[in-house]
Amino acid sequence: MEGTLRWAALTAVAPVAWGANYYVTRQFLPADQPLWGAALRALPAGCLLLLAARQRPRGVWWGRSAVLGVLNTSAFFVFVYVASQTLATSTASMVMALSPLALTLGAWLLLAERPSPAHLVAAAVGPAGVVLMLGGPGAQTRPAGILASVAAMLVSTAGYLLSKRWDSGPGVLSVTAWQLTCGGVVLLVLAAVTEGAPPPVGGAAVAAYAYTSLVATALAFLAWFTGLRRLSAGTVGLLGLLNPVTGVLLGLSLADERLGVPQVAGMVLVLAAVLCGRPRAAAPGGRTGKAPQARAAGRPGGLAD
């Protein structure tokens, strides 16, 4: 159980980093070139991890890397960038809190990974907290931003489920590097064709791009996909609820946003859902639920090849 909690703690790095990324993107990056913003987030992270992995795709992994790159990187990053620029930090991140329900149900239907009753309850309680937080005073509901957030949630859920389905073979480091690089190349081409020259960046923007690429992408994706291999989809999805909590707290402390009593109650429900869906004791063989382990020898924790 202690080892499982360590994997959960590692996985939690990702939603916390993503929650902070909404604020960084909204405050410090240009709003009118989302493709360049997404490309400058994905491609440096992918190249850095590719240098560390020192392995290229082989066989079916060329196609799989392209599919995962489009879903988890190209489409996802563009939608998140648009949502970050058109919604308040708290609202943008809270819409994404619906992803645990989608991930839990998707894993049940497509991967035969049946959730525990606690996960089902938590998957319902979490969105209830989201509804409370979204309905507060001053909450932004601009249609473009809401649609972008929903689209980001749907494409990332599909990508995460495919990542879990294809988790045998290469290690997490390589698979993460391949999809970020593939997705980043697609974004770079689209940005150059449709948005022209890259945006000019000053000191604050350089620091912001460094955070989005190194922390909110390279580190966060490694943590997240490691969690998908070590924990059940339901547990990983519920840990994703730390994303909106981080966004709300940053919005309150740095962006002068306000929460009323319903929003505080919603945050309490979200945190209760995370605790309710915490990983259980491992079954014989070191497995937690039906989550697969890292396959290959010589890959401690599935983090490196």
Rank of each mutant, 00 (worst) to 15 (best):
R142P: 00
L103E: 06
L162T: 11
P127G: 09
L87V: 07
I146A: 01
L109M: 13
A148F: 08
V150D: 01
A207S: 08
G138F: 08
M133A: 15
T217D: 09
R165K: 15
T194K: 07
W178V: 09
L111G: 06
S174G: 13
A208E: 01
H119A: 13
A191I: 07
P117H: 03
T157P: 06
V186L: 13
G159H: 04
G171L: 05
T212C: 14
A151T: 09
P143M: 10
A107C: 06
G202W: 04
A88F: 11
R142L: 13
A112L: 00
T91A: 14
A210F: 09
W166Y: 10
W178I: 09
Q179V: 06
L214E: 02
V125S: 09
V150Y: 04
A191H: 06
V121K: 05
S149Y: 02
G159L: 02
L101M: 15
S156D: 10
M94V: 15
T181R: 00
Y160P: 00
A88L: 15
S174T: 05
I146M: 12
M96R: 02
S93D: 08
L134Y: 05
S168A: 15
G106Q: 06
V121P: 00
V130Y: 05
L161I: 13
L188A: 14
L190V: 09
A210W: 05
G184Q: 09
A107F: 02
A122L: 10
L162E: 01
T181I: 10
A152S: 15
V201E: 11
G135N: 11
L110Q: 09
S116N: 03
A97L: 10
M153N: 03
L105K: 07
M153P: 05
G106V: 01
T181N: 03
G203L: 11
A107N: 10
S116C: 04
D167M: 10
G106K: 05
A124T: 12
V215S: 04
A92Q: 08
S90Q: 11
R165H: 14
S93G: 15
L98N: 04
S174M: 07
G183V: 03
P198H: 05
G169Y: 04
W108I: 03
A148S: 14
L134C: 00
E195M: 01
G159V: 08
L187Q: 01
L105S: 08
G129L: 08
L110P: 00
P200S: 14
Q140V: 15
A97V: 12
L162W: 13
G203K: 08
A192K: 01
V193E: 07
P198A: 04
T176R: 07
